[in-house]
Amino acid sequence: MEREQQLADTLDACFDRVRGGQTIDDALTEHAADADALRPLLDIATRLESLPDPNVSLAGLMNTLGRLGSQTLTTSRAEPTPRKARWFSRPVWTRAAAIVLVMFLIGWGTANASANAMPGDFLYPVKLFTERARFFLTLNTEDQAELRIVFSSRRLREAVAQQQRTGEVDPQLLKDMLEEARLAVLAAPELPEPGRQLLVSRAAHLTDYQYDALGRFADDGSSQSQIVEQYRDMCRDRSRWMRQMLEPENGSSRGSTTEHSDRHSDWHHWRNRCPMW
């Protein structure tokens, strides 16, 4: 019994080292007498850690969120509210969850239908909700950055559509557009080449396009033209900032370890200089 406890403690200590990045052999160095007994157990432990993740279906997640919406509705019913103010007095979550619940009652097709929804449409919150769920289900940093670029493009498209429909620009949409683009490009230092350069290059092109689009908004004499100009200046500054790291002298051809390390630190330094509000 005492021997088992001792082996169990040693196994646990060795596993912590393996989790910390050591090889199994290195972790067992100080426990040569027990190495033969513990090596196969550590090997199994590392194999367990590398078992594949299950596929997560978006439908399953949405179903869960629908149940949460249903739950909050039930809770809200238990607390009587004035008849006329009932819907508008519910918390935002309850209303969002109710929309999701209705979406499920109508069918999954609604989620696809929401893909083209614009601000003010009944399905627009579903579209934002689906985007968020998709983002949180994406674990890879590069894919997350790509999604943010897509979201940023969508916000611009929505801003244009809304401006054509109402004659006014929604500053919040433009702010979201710039924020998604900023968060996308901030992931660049974490990516390996060539993904890093490609991401910054895509973000820079998108920013240039947004700069031009904001110019058209400003020309239309909108009541929000001052804010639009401010956002346009931000696009210009960010485009310059992004292109600093795309210039030839900042190319990825340098090879030595020191240069690699300098370059790594360059990228982090560059990220900290992102133009902000």
Binding site: P54, G60, L61, T64, W93, A97, F129, R132, A133, F136
Partner: peptide
Amino acid sequence: AGEAEALTALCARYYPKVLKYMR
């Protein structure tokens, strides 16, 4: 506090982990 965004994010973040446990 009942914020939709926070609850959605919390659920979306931990849903894969709980699903994996259940599997």
